[in-house]
Design a binder for these strands. Structure first.
Length: 544
RNA sequence: GCGCCCGUAGCUCAAUUGGAUAGAGCGUCUGGCUUCGGACCAGAAGGUUUGGGGUUCGAGUCCCUACGGGCGUACCA
């Protein structure tokens, strides 16, 4: 419909003596206030300047030039400072409602990003402990963005990047070793800055059960490290599974060392004089890109900082032929990813294909006050604990509710007690209620032929239909802006719109034809709710 | 100090990316169940969009500035 209006306006516009290059963008939008119609354009306002004329006069002229099919658009009005408002015809609405019913569980999908190969990298937590509520936002955002993009036709891979080589992992191994020695009777101190969590003892215990005290004199900590990595990874995978997240691949940072990608990056950058040696370290000339300081890529110890493998990793992603690579990062990375992009660009790759989504941190509120978490100090709330309390539906919903760019306050107590009051139940309830009605309808009536949709005349009915029709556009905008909360806001208004209809119009006990038409409308609504919730990774119970 | 993000109703947050009278949920107050699921609905109160300037037909949204908060500012990740 938007395209149709745009084209009609463009045709009208072509009757002006105006250079095509100075044409403004023809924007069609849905007015905030429904009394302003179903669609509106500000074209006359935009033309005021180039035409040196009063916007209302321009609007009048435009409307005169405008040729619209009455079967699609029932009215055109000029309002306010010069907006042109359109109203959809009933025919148009009914035809599209029918279309929703036909498309069923694919309604809402589009080919907007057809043929695009996309890689979404998210979670990427190092395996040093269980996933916490702090990782939750990253995990759920990444997965839902992937789902949204799939609904717009893209081919999406989900990838988890992890580091099992660095200092953190060494500390992890030492922590397990210390617990193991303590368990087997040696009185050894726990390492400074070690991981204090209970899960470390569990891992040590499993080693003690398997090997007894045979590992006591091992100097090499790799046994401890590898066991810890394996067990923690299983744990992380299980948590992701519970949250409805399935990774397509796990990318191991260590591989970048083994296949010499890192060396190649350094060599290539050095050739362009973007890398130099000083004080025993190897530096990247980030001052060339407007930074205050150059950045160390290889420490004087010979060990790379994480930035170097990061550049190699992103180069690797682009080499794999993706058209778009999305990184989901917390706000703490905000200052570091430009280095990576500059590095990739300097290597001759198209950094435009990398899109970094930076979300603001989650503030955990526990017992009414902000709670500072640390994996190392073991004062954290794990995602598993949270899901034990509220389930995965509430967990996912909570993380998606807010725009990624604002701080998300996560009140543990509130989430736990949220129970019946939680907004996710409002959506599921609407869905369950529709199915309850549909079950009853099945008992009393049998419909044949296509539903007589023209009988839907009540305002709450047409409002609901209009609301349903927006679904595909909402998915596209949520996907392309990487903002899943838009879908939540939409579903919320859809559920509200259905409830208004439910209170105004009965289904059961009406004339069979009207009952059929309203049953069709209810079916379409439950379809859109179900499709929308499935994109969010949230279940759609038929009864609660 | 410098860089990035944020500041909207008592609280948590929206606002079609520059559009018309800034909206929801929670909380507060009033009303509504012998009829399809009351986990609901209708209504009320609550705002100088942190303050101040600017840009234009038009600003919560863009620019400058002050203040307040978060995150960075490592040869940590």
């Amino acid at each position: 419909m938007n395209e149709y209006l745009q084209k009609a306006l463009a045709d009208a516009l072509s009757r002006y003596e105006l250079d095509r290059s100075s044409w403004p963008d023809i924007q069609i939008e849905k007015p905030r206030d429904p009394s302003h119609g179903d669609a509106a354009t500000n074209l006359a306002l935009m033309l005021a300047k180039p035409l040196q004329s009063n916007p209302r006069k321009i609007a009048e002229q435009l409307v005169e030039y405008l040729e619209l099919d009455e079967n699609l658009v029932s009215s055109v009005e000029i309002a306010g400072p010069g907006f042109i408002n359109f109203r959809y015809s009933k025919d148009y609405l009914m035809k599209n409602l029918h279309h929703i019913l036909q498309k069923g569980e694919t309604f809402g999908s589009s080919d907007k990003n057809q043929g695009k190969r996309v890689l979404v990298e998210f979670v990427s937590a190092n395996p040093t402990g269980p996933l916490t509520v702090g990782h939750g936002r990253n995990a759920v955002l990444g997965d839902t963005i992937a789902r949204l993009l799939e609904w717009t036709g893209a081919e999406v891979d989900r990838e988890y990047y992890f580091n099992n080589a660095g200092r953190q992992m060494r500390v992890l191994g030492q922590s397990v070793q210390a617990r193991y020695l303590q368990l087997t009777g040696r009185d050894v101190p726990f390492p400074d800055g070690g991981y204090e969590g209970e899960y470390i003892r569990d891992i040590a215990k499993s080693l003690a059960v398997e090997f007894g005290d045979k590992l006591q004199d091992k100097e090499d900590i790799s046994v401890f490290k590898e066991r810890a990595e394996k067990e923690i990874f299983n744990d992380i995978s299980a948590t992701l599974n519970r949250m409805n997240i399935r990774m397509d691949s796990f990318f191991n940072e260590h591989d970048l060392y083994e296949n010499s990608s890192i060396k190649e990056v350094i060599q290539a950058l050095r050739k362009d004089d973007l890398v130099y040696d000083e004080d025993g370290a190897t530096w990247f000339r980030t001052t060339k890109y407007g930074k205050d300081k150059d950045t160390v890529l290889i420490k004087s110890s010979g060990e790379p900082t994480y930035r170097l493998p990061d550049i190699a990793y992103h180069k690797n992603k682009l080499e794999r032929g993706y058209d778009l690579c999305i990184d989901v990062f917390g706000a703490d990375h905000i200052d570091t990813y430009p280095d990576v992009l500059n590095g990739v660009r300097a290597l001759g790759y198209d950094a435009e294909k990398i899109d970094v989504l930076v979300y603001q941190f989650v503030t955990i509120v526990k017992d009414g006050k902000p709670y500072k978490m640390s994996t190392r100090k073991a004062n954290f709330v794990t995602l598993d604990e949270l899901m034990d309390e509220v389930g995965s539906d509430v967990t996912r919903f909570f993380f998606l509710m807010r725009s990624p760019s604002t701080h998300l306050e996560f009140d543990i107590a509130q989430a736990k007690e949220a129970g019946e009051k939680n907004p996710v139940f409002y959506l599921q309830y609407a869905h369950a209620r529709i199915h309850s009605i549909l079950r009853k309808v099945e008992d009393v009536a049998e419909f044949t032929g296509s539903p007589p949709l023209h009988l839907l005349e009540d305002e709450s009915e047409t409002d609901l239909i209009k609301n349903l029709l927006e679904f595909p556009e909402v998915i596209i905008s949520a996907a392309n802006s990487r903002e899943p909360h838009r879908l939540i806001n939409y579903l919320d208004s859809l559920a509200a719109s259905f409830t208004t209809f439910y209170h105004d119009c009965r289904i059961l006990g009406e004339d069979p034809k009207l009952m059929y038409a309203r049953t069709a409308l209810a079916t379409a609504t439950s379809r859109v709710l179900a499709n929308g919730l499935s994109i969010l990774g949230i279940s759609t119970p038929e009864s609660m």
